Simulated assay, not measured.
Amino acid sequence: MRIIGTILGVIAGVFSIFLWIMLVFYNPYTGSSSEDVAINTFFTLCLPACLAITSSFMNKKYLMLIAFIWSLPISLYVMLTPGIFAWFIVPCITYFICFLCFSPRIKAKVIH
């Protein structure tokens, strides 16, 4: 499960960074990019993605949980907008799935 979590975490982080680049530099819904929007979304979307990628390589589940919680509010906000940027919720949810993949399995004892 850890390998799946690692792969999903890296893919989700890269996908989120790709969407952030589209949002800031190639946004079809605005004529020009605002510097404030770029800075705010960098701290709320791009940095959690970098943290998720780092967490995937280090197999640190608590860092993945931090990335999920950190990106959740703006991901929920952007999810309600029309267009391609509603997809920001997918990496956010994937961060939580990766957190669950990094959690140790609970082994049930079988009593005969």
Rank of each mutant, 00 (worst) to 15 (best):
3 I>R: 15
4 I>L: 15
5 G>A: 12
5 G>T: 09
8 L>N: 07
9 G>Q: 07
10 V>S: 07
11 I>K: 05
13 G>N: 08
20 W>H: 10
20 W>I: 06
22 M>W: 08
22 M>G: 07
23 L>A: 05
26 Y>L: 13
27 N>G: 03
30 T>E: 12
30 T>W: 07
31 G>T: 08
31 G>I: 06
32 S>W: 14
33 S>A: 13
37 V>C: 03
40 N>K: 12
40 N>Q: 09
42 F>W: 13
46 C>W: 10
46 C>R: 03
48 P>T: 07
49 A>G: 06
50 C>E: 09
56 S>L: 04
57 F>L: 09
58 M>V: 13
61 K>D: 02
62 Y>K: 13
64 M>N: 03
65 L>K: 10
66 I>V: 14
67 A>H: 01
67 A>D: 05
68 F>W: 11
70 W>D: 04
70 W>T: 04
71 S>Y: 03
71 S>E: 08
71 S>N: 11
72 L>N: 02
73 P>Y: 04
75 S>H: 04
75 S>P: 05
76 L>A: 10
76 L>T: 02
76 L>M: 10
77 Y>C: 04
77 Y>L: 14
77 Y>H: 11
78 V>W: 05
82 P>Y: 08
82 P>G: 08
83 G>W: 01
85 F>T: 01
85 F>M: 02
88 F>D: 01
89 I>E: 00
91 P>S: 09
91 P>I: 06
92 C>W: 04
96 F>C: 08
98 C>Q: 07
100 L>P: 04
101 C>F: 13
104 P>R: 13
104 P>N: 15
105 R>M: 09
107 K>S: 14
107 K>N: 15
110 V>K: 15
110 V>A: 14
